[in-house]
Design a binder for these strands. Sequence first.
DNA 1: CTAAAGAGATAGTAATACTATCATCCGGGG
DNA 2: CCCCGGATGATAGTATTACTATCTCTTTAG
Lengths: 226, 226
Amino acid sequence: MQRLMQMNVQVTEPVYLKDPQGTDLGRRIIEHSVILIDELGLEKFTFGKLAAALGTAESSIYRYFDNKHRLLIYLVGWYWSWREYKLVFDTANIADPLTRLERGVRSVTEPISDKGSFGYLDLRALYRIAISESSKAYMTKEVDEEHKEGCFSGFKRLCDRVRDLVLAVAPEHPYPAALASNVVDGSMVQRFFADHLPSLTDRSVKARLSDHFVHLVFASVNAPSR
Amino acid sequence: MQRLMQMNVQVTEPVYLKDPQGTDLGRRIIEHSVILIDELGLEKFTFGKLAAALGTAESSIYRYFDNKHRLLIYLVGWYWSWREYKLVFDTANIADPLTRLERGVRSVTEPISDKGSFGYLDLRALYRIAISESSKAYMTKEVDEEHKEGCFSGFKRLCDRVRDLVLAVAPEHPYPAALASNVVDGSMVQRFFADHLPSLTDRSVKARLSDHFVHLVFASVNAPSR
DNA sequence: CTAAAGAGATAGTAATACTATCATCCGGGG
DNA sequence: CCCCGGATGATAGTATTACTATCTCTTTAG
């Protein structure tokens, strides 16, 4: 829990100007930005509205984050760290690589339904943000520089762990990393489709998202190398 | 070719205010918006800059599109229509369902490398826009309404065709639609990763993106139903 | 010859995304 | 007790964006 709070340990420069974990206002910024972005969507969310919601000045928020894009990177970074933590937990102490892989894929693709907020953070709102907004964190012209800064290391670490689960089962798999990132990213996209463009998925996916990805991954690791 | 020019035929309301195909300025708006969005990225692209590039007034552009979001929807709609056209062409007159499926998956996931611009449109620039910006067309709070308007019907039609290719091979497949949309969307995401976050994919994917998806799809259709 | 369509030009508004400055408040060290 | 630095609050100001409105001019079809 505590470990999770300190995300982006390996990052060369931090995504923030001042660590929001360290102060009361900082934590309130995180807490309420999650709620507000979830409510308004990223494009209509502004620091002005956040400041109003917090009863503080816009300039106070700029002391923590350069702009809302950096704040988004921070939030989705947190989300991926949380997913990684959960993955490690869910696959701990399982010897059989096949079982580990299945549990891992389920862990990573499972929707977040339990109410449990995480500290002061509304986890379900953060999950919804991750679904709708996380790709906007890297689908920009600044990807390459931000990638060098380590802004997406949380996502990468998670994908690497899934890739390793695949490789443990199928060391000769031709596309382990692509399969892994496809599962991690694809599970978010399929969740979005199920909720908003349902004709793009199958009914069963809405109810059991993980089954689809378990099916896909096991099909892939069992496939002949062609 | 001519047929393709008229995209979004089934749309209830058009995405545009005035058909850009019908006038000289309209076509120049399309042509240069593709170039400018590719160059600046969607967030830094503005109607003001487009107007300047065209040597016209901002207000003239507003006669064609309500805002840049609608313009984006129009452009990616065109892209998906083009992909669909190509898919139909590439799978025409092939009797064997397995061959059709493989050709279809290759057609849909194949990067656009040939220089051939499409009429006045720079196809490769449009492809790059589709990779980096297409998800922003629907990852908004307005998805549901815009979906009702038919804004995403081009994407849906393409996914449906891929789904049908899958079903022709494996009529009992448990997730045909999810597999199809995963391939169509995933191929764009993997392309982006290969170009900008290469550690998230495998080396071979950069060179042969389609192979990965052919492998995945055939693994999935051949998998036991578990 | 006229009406309407298309385009250009100008102006104006509200919101956004910042930057800068100054005052205040509060706890700890000397 | 006083002073200092860190954290916050309040106000102001700028450039840009995202529009809306209006007026003129030109072209062309009837």
